[in-house]
Design a binder for these strands. Structure first.
Lengths: 246, 246
DNA sequence: GTCTATAAGCGGATAGAC
DNA sequence: GTCTATCCGCTTATAGAC
């Protein structure tokens, strides 16, 4: 999702073919569900970026509407309240997040490669969808004013499952004993930070934005840190693979 | 700072001793600098908590004033604009942060204990002043809309110095080679997260808030992860010291 | 579905009396 | 320093025509 397909949809928006004269088969008269879905997604996508930058209260529905190219009243036709739009954004972020991480950290897998994959997937998410990550982060930082129930129902179980997997590996002697909850807290933080704090990172690195090479380096370091901490791997093949840009 | 001395200041606020009659020595007529400083601090303290919870746009100066027990117009006497108040909050957070971390990560120190101290100090900060940490985090996540210059001038050099120290340890062969920037990114994230994401953590742990024992466990795991990643330490003395509450 | 019009309230900020 | 009064713009949301 994210930035895709906005342009095409926008150009075709106002006024489809006129109805009265030339149409052979009468167009279906039920509410246009497809259009509804497209508009919902497009509005949510615009809202996601704006909420990420300015926070819930820092964005007006008029601004979202303007970015999509519709009127604010029209936006209110699709989302009855600003809060509904905000929740929809969080839902979308969460859906994709759960989808991407489904099945990773399977307790039957090899711990090292399972953890590697998990870290890679989370970093990919930070890279592909920083806005979503940021909206979620600010909601959590604010103390879950809108999304506490959903987080409890959908996120916490997923996180607990990962902790549980790690604990099973410990119990089976496949990794060294460690406080699994805190290890996972750190994994989440270390991967999330590449979305949330990338502005600060860019400033430290003296560049405009993080590059692909930065994300590769991040993946290597996070994986090394985590794996070594539970006695899984000494060091990656090459000591420090040549950075491409930076 | 934070929550201290609010009560006493509030009770004595309205109307000091009347001026006309009984006073022997005429009270100094210059602007009361001491009062100014106290009020500034008190307002900033209240604002810090509110900004942390609701974000810059989610807080009205009237709400801040109400929490302090003054009128909104009176608040505007001390801070001419809402933005000035917000910057003052960030300044305060940054001042204390730099103060606490000053001198840590000295390149002449033993790397292991220097890093341990650094991690402990950052975690203590997350624990003592979560609101400040959160305000800062949301400002960064939002892309530094107000505080870019200050971050560039005061924070980035401090962060770079820490990276530099780590690099010197690598060059001197005192620690194993590693991508120092990313290691530090992870250290910042792993310590910061115990302030910013503590709500989510509490939900995962099934408790109201993080306890002292949680912070001790965090310190142990973060230190272990970081030190091991550069070949500094095998494991802490006891395998898993008995948790006190949880 | 999309538009115009408008309700009803809160936001930050200023002016001036005391 | 603190108060009263007030300006004005922007906000979410609704009503109803087309």
């Amino acid at each position: 999702m994210a930035t895709a397909k906005r342009a095409e949809a926008s150009t075709q928006r106002r006024r489809r073919a006129p109805r009265g004269a030339t149409a052979g088969a009468p167009p279906p008269r039920r509410p246009d569900l497809r259009r509804r879905r497209v508009m919902d997604a497009e509005i949510a996508c615009a809202a996601e970026e704006l909420f990420a930058q300015h926070g819930f209260h820092g964005v007006s529905i008029a601004e979202v509407a303007a970015r999509v190219g519709i009127s604010k009243q029209n936006l209110l036709y699709y989302f009855p309240t600003k809060e509904a739009l905000y929740r929809r954004v969080l839902d979308g972020v969460l859906d994709e997040w759960l989808e991407r991480l489904r099945g990773l950290a399977d307790p039957d897998k090899d711990p090292a490669s399972a953890l590697r994959e998990y870290i890679a997937a989370k970093l990919r998410y930070s890279r592909d969808r920083p806005s979503g990550s940021r909206v979620f982060a600010t909601e959590i930082i604010a103390g879950l004013p809108f999304y506490a129930a959903e987080l409890r129902e959908r996120v916490v179980p997923a996180l607990r499952a990962q902790v549980e997997t790690l604990n099973r590996w410990v119990a089976a002697g496949r990794v060294e004993p460690i406080d699994a909850v805190h290890l996972m807290f750190i994994v989440w933080a270390a991967t999330q930070t590449y979305a949330d704090f990338s502005h600060q990172m860019a400033l430290v690195l003296g560049k405009e934005a993080l590059s692909a090479a930065d994300f590769e380096a991040a993946e290597e370091v996070v994986a090394r840190i985590v794996l070594r901490s539970i006695g899984l791997e000494a060091a990656p093949p090459g000591p420090t693979p040549a950075p491409r840009d930076r």
